[in-house]
Computed example of a mutant assay.
Amino acid sequence: MSHSPLLNLPGPSQELLDDIESALAAARDFVSAFDPELVVTFSPDHYNGFFYRAMPPFCIGTAAAGVGDYGTYEGPLDVPAELATDCARAVLDADVDVAISAAMDVDHGTVQPLQKLFGEATAKPVIPVFVNCVATPLGPMRRVRALGAAVGAHLATLGKRVLVVGSGGLSHDPPVPTLATAPPAALKRIVHGVPMTTEQRQARQAAVMEAAREFATGHSPLAPLNPHWDHAFLDLLDTNRLAEVDGWDNGRIAAQAGNSAHEVRTWVAAFSALATQGGYETGNRFYRAAPDLIAGFAIRTAVSTR
């Protein structure tokens, strides 16, 4: 499923919010019927927990806390440390390099889906898996698929009902600072992790809302949404053609769908985890090109056909 800080901020039309809420309600019904014993999230970060002072391509948290950005949950998550450590060990044994964090900070990219699906971020035990989708240079897509497959192979040995969540927007190019263009204050945050003050967080929220307003009215330098690219990606998932992403070029992804379209890496990891069990079928096929959210917003549910 996609996430967006703008779901928690003034600006998006009520019609859009109602449409997304209807799709989320269907996903909640799906999750409730499955009643998972464990949740594993593949999520990005927006320079709230991971910074250029040490930017891993992947990281598994053995303990984690929400930072509370954009009105999302702030505080510790229910992370089963031993299960998370075993998962990290299994991924490393599968020849996929992954970092481990015993004090992972996670933002709305991780927390918002948990709150939307369960009502509370702490409702279920969760193993958070960070996937770098923003801080270039990025690794090849085939490594993301390998990560998902390694996690999925391990989860299949647990004898538990496990819900795997991939959290990310499709085509979108929001105003996220980069190492090459960030002003000094932003550099301190994205490189050294200097915490933002309350005033700085409020200013960032205001800037995001203004950027969305300009984008929705067609007066923005941000890259446009690409529904054609989004639908092609969703069709790839629906038809279990995951291996095709192995040949995707990172620069071409950004050029066609925006810099933050790399958040589809979380979807690739999640579906690759499920695909280790064989075939799967998708349902709840929601998609909306949503300029008010500066994102192609989508939701898919899927179950193994075994």
Rank of each mutant, 00 (worst) to 15 (best):
L83W: 03
K116L: 07
T72W: 13
L225T: 05
L155N: 00
G152R: 00
L274S: 14
A186D: 08
V268T: 04
C87G: 08
A90C: 03
L155R: 09
K124I: 12
T85W: 14
Q256F: 05
D97I: 11
S272V: 10
N259I: 11
T197F: 04
A27V: 02
H172W: 14
P224T: 13
A216E: 06
L7R: 02
A269N: 09
D95G: 15
V176W: 13
A65T: 08
H262D: 01
G296I: 09
Y287K: 00
A88K: 15
N250Q: 10
V176Q: 08
S13F: 03
L163R: 12
D97M: 15
A261P: 05
V126F: 04
A275G: 07
D246Y: 00
A269T: 10
Q202C: 00
V264F: 14
R28K: 12
Y280W: 05
G218M: 08
A207M: 06
A63T: 07
T282F: 13
V264N: 11
Q205L: 13
A211F: 03
V134M: 12
C59L: 08
D249N: 02
A84Q: 15
G61H: 05
L225S: 05
A54M: 07
G49Y: 07
C133W: 11
V268C: 01
M209H: 11
D230H: 00
Q200G: 00
T157C: 10
G139L: 05
D235A: 06
A153N: 05
A290C: 09
P140F: 09
V164I: 00
L77E: 02
S43V: 10
K188H: 12
N226I: 05
V162E: 02
H154G: 03
F42N: 08
L83P: 03
T136S: 09
A90F: 05
A103S: 10
V79G: 01
L38A: 01
G169M: 15
A290P: 00
R213G: 05
P5Y: 11
Y73Q: 00
N132M: 09
L114P: 01
R201M: 06
A295H: 07
G278L: 03
T178W: 08
R300F: 08
E214A: 12
H172P: 12
A212I: 03
D29I: 15
N250L: 07
P128G: 02
G159A: 15
P36V: 13
E37V: 13
I20A: 00
H219R: 11
D97V: 09
G296F: 10
D86S: 14
P5R: 05
F297N: 01
A65E: 15
